[in-house]
Simulated assay, not measured.
Amino acid sequence: MATRSMNADDPLDDFAARELALDGVTRKVHVAGRGPAVVVMAEMPGISPHVARFARWVRDAGFTVYMPSLFGRDGAVPGAEEGAAVFRRACVSAEFNALAGGRSSPVTNWLRALARHAHRECGGPGVGAIGMCFTGNFALTMMLEPSVLAPVLAQPSLPLEEPAGLEIADDEITAVRERLDRDNLTVLAYRFKGDRICRAERFAAYAAALGDRFIARELPDSAANTDVAPFFARYVSYPHSVVTQHLVDAAGQPTIAARDEILAFFARRLAVPTNRPDPIARD
C-alpha cells in the first residue's frame, strides 16, 4: 500500500464512490478490493485519512471493502470546529440513538441491507463488519443479518450518557446471543484502558449479555499515538481510537497487533487464506 499523509485530506481516489439505494434510502459507499465483503464504518467525525488507511489494510488483506458515508466530509482531516459541528448534528439526528441505551440506531437497518447487498455481490461464506466509536456497536446489531459472520467493535461509545449502557434493544441482544451460540461465532472488541468514552463498564455489560462469545481486548494507554488531528487533540484528549487516530504504525506496537488480529479474524470467518495465526479461534 502506498504511503499517504495522515495530515492532508484523502481524495479516496483508489475507491469507487457508489450511490447505493437500499431499503428506500440512498447513501454513498466507497468500495475497493476483491474477495469477501467487509463493511468498515467510520468513527466520528467521518471517513478521515486514518479510517481510509485502515480500510486499505482490510482491502490489501484480500477483502472487498464497503465504507459507507454516514456523517462528515469524506476524506477530511478531522478539524476541531468542523468535527464538533458534525458531532452535534449526529447527536440530534433521528438516524442515531446517541444518548440513551436500550435501542439500536435506526441507521443499522440500512447497514444490514448493505451487508446483504455486499454478500450478494462478493459471495463467500458471509460478511465482516467493524464499527468504530460512534458506530462501534453497529457491527453487533448487524449480527441480526444472517450474512454477517465477523463483527468487530472498536471502542464502542454509544450511548454517550450511560457508561454501562448498550446501544441495542434487549430482545435484539438476546437474538444476537442466541445466534452466536447457534453458529459458534464470537464478537471481537477493543478499547484503551483509560478511554473516558468507552469505559470498562460498557465492556462488562457486553460480557454479561454475551458471555464468553464476547472477546475483549484492552490496550494500555501507553500504546496510544499522541500525534492526532485537531478534533481529537481538542475533544478526545485521551487514548481512544485503537486502529485509527491512536494507532502507532510501527512493528511490535500493541495497536498493530490489534489490527493484525482483526484481519486474521476476518480471514478465518470469511475463509480468506492467510499466514497470520488466529489467537481467538474457538473450534
Rank of each mutant, 00 (worst) to 15 (best):
A208D: 08
R34N: 11
L114E: 05
R282K: 09
R177A: 06
V39H: 02
G252N: 02
F71R: 12
R191L: 11
E145H: 05
F71C: 06
N97G: 06
L180C: 07
W110T: 09
D221F: 12
N225I: 06
L114P: 07
R56G: 05
A200W: 12
E95G: 05
G252T: 04
V176G: 03
P36M: 07
P273I: 07
S105Y: 01
Y235N: 15
M142G: 01
A264H: 03
A115V: 01
P279N: 00
E43I: 09
N109L: 11
N275Y: 05
N225Y: 10
G102W: 00
T186I: 14
Y238H: 15
F203L: 15
V39W: 02
C133M: 08
N7Y: 09
L99G: 06
F54I: 14
F265S: 00
P254L: 03
V51T: 15
G62R: 10
D10F: 08
L270G: 00
V272A: 06
R179M: 03
F265E: 00
R182Y: 04
D227Y: 06
R269C: 04
G75S: 13
R73G: 14
G46W: 04
A169C: 02
R88H: 13
A209E: 07
L22F: 10
R34D: 14
A205N: 02
P254R: 02
D170N: 01
A32T: 10
L70V: 10
V228F: 07
R179P: 00
D10R: 12
M1N: 12
A216R: 15
P230W: 09
E172W: 00
P159G: 04
T141L: 04
I262L: 06
V152F: 04
G126L: 00
R179H: 03
L158G: 02
G46H: 03
G211K: 00
L263H: 00
F71V: 04
F96D: 01
V243E: 01
D23S: 13
F134S: 07
R120P: 08
P220A: 10
A129C: 09
R56M: 07
A16I: 11
T226N: 12
P230K: 11
N109G: 13
R234Y: 08
F71L: 12
L22D: 06
C198G: 09
N184R: 13
F266L: 04
A139T: 03
A271F: 03
R88F: 15
F54Q: 12
R120N: 15
L158Y: 06
A208H: 05
W57E: 15
R179F: 05
P11D: 11
S157D: 10
N275D: 10
H246M: 11
R268L: 08
F266N: 01
E161R: 11
S48F: 13
A139E: 00
A52D: 12
S147I: 03
G194T: 14
R276F: 07
S69C: 13
G72T: 10
V228C: 15
A189Y: 06
R116D: 14
P273G: 07
P151R: 03
W57V: 11
A94G: 07
P125Y: 03
Y190C: 02
R4E: 13
R259Q: 12
P163Q: 10
D278F: 03
L210I: 02
R276H: 05
I262E: 01
G35P: 11
V236G: 08
V107Q: 01
A250T: 02
H50L: 12
F232C: 14
H246S: 10
N275H: 10
A200Q: 14
P277H: 05
T108M: 00
